[in-house]
């Protein structure tokens, strides 16, 4: 498995300066991009193509703080992942209660149609869920420094990774519920955006 951090010559740390990452991305693009290998042999061109594809992929994953954590976990676990819609995540235990309420509102909207009252209610629920999602992301980012410390020094890597996994699962679940609510509210357009961009 390719190490996206290594692609940029970076250690497996979660705290990254986005400007520095971008600078390296541009620098490496100038080396690998197929535009600069047009006259080269077929072999060289194929190599440039895959090097450039890997670089672009690595940049996409690492520039976003949350997908960076997702990737790190996959890397530490040694499994290959891919972007996009995986199987529907299961509800984390600590979210169950709040989610139940939303599901109920969704069921009612489905059964009885969307009147002003239920629209209002769903809209509020969605606001709450989005705030919650943001909170999860902030919590994840807040512990990035802890990880960066245990990578180079002593500390419980396994426990921290496990915690990250749980929080990421919670966030993923929140996102699918937000999408469902958006769909019910007839804002399907937004769904495409939300479930593609990290």
């Amino acid at each position: 498995m390719n190490d996206y951090f290594a692609v940029f010559g970076l250690p497996r740390k979660l705290q990254l300066d986005p400007e520095e990452l971008r600078r390296r991305f541009y620098e490496l693009s100038r080396v690998h991009h197929p535009d600069f290998h047009q006259g080269a042999s077929e072999e060289d061109q194929a190599e440039a193509l895959s090097a450039s594809a890997l670089l672009n992929r690595a940049y996409r994953v690492l520039r976003d703080p949350v997908s960076r954590v997702e990737y790190l976990i996959a890397l530490e676990d040694g499994r290959e992942t891919r972007e996009g819609a995986d199987a529907r995540p299961r509800a984390p235990v600590d979210l169950l209660e709040e989610i139940m309420e939303v599901q109920e509102a969704l069921q009612e909207a489905k059964a009885g149609g969307l009147d002003e009252v239920s629209r209002q209610r769903l809209s509020e629920e969605r606001q709450r869920l989005m705030a919650r999602q943001l909170a999860e992301e902030e919590a994840i980012a807040a512990r990035a420094a802890e990880w960066d410390a245990v990578v180079v020094g002593p500390g419980d890597r396994t426990a921290l990774l496990e915690w990250f996994k749980q929080r990421l699962a919670a966030r993923a679940y929140l996102r699918t519920v937000i999408d469902d609510v958006s769909d019910a509210l007839g804002q399907g357009e937004e769904r495409h955006v939300s479930h593609r961009r990290h």
Binding site: A53, L54, R57
Partner: peptide, 28 residues
């Protein structure tokens, strides 16, 4: 545009999301 493959039940599984910088690749 997002690129995907058809999976069971006629659902699309996205391999490469739209607005991904090209060249790009996905393995499956």
């Amino acid at each position: 545009l997002s690129l995907g493959i058809e999976t069971l039940g006629g659902v699309v599984s996205v391999l490469i999301a739209r607005n991904t910088t090209i060249p790009t690749m996905a393995k499956e």
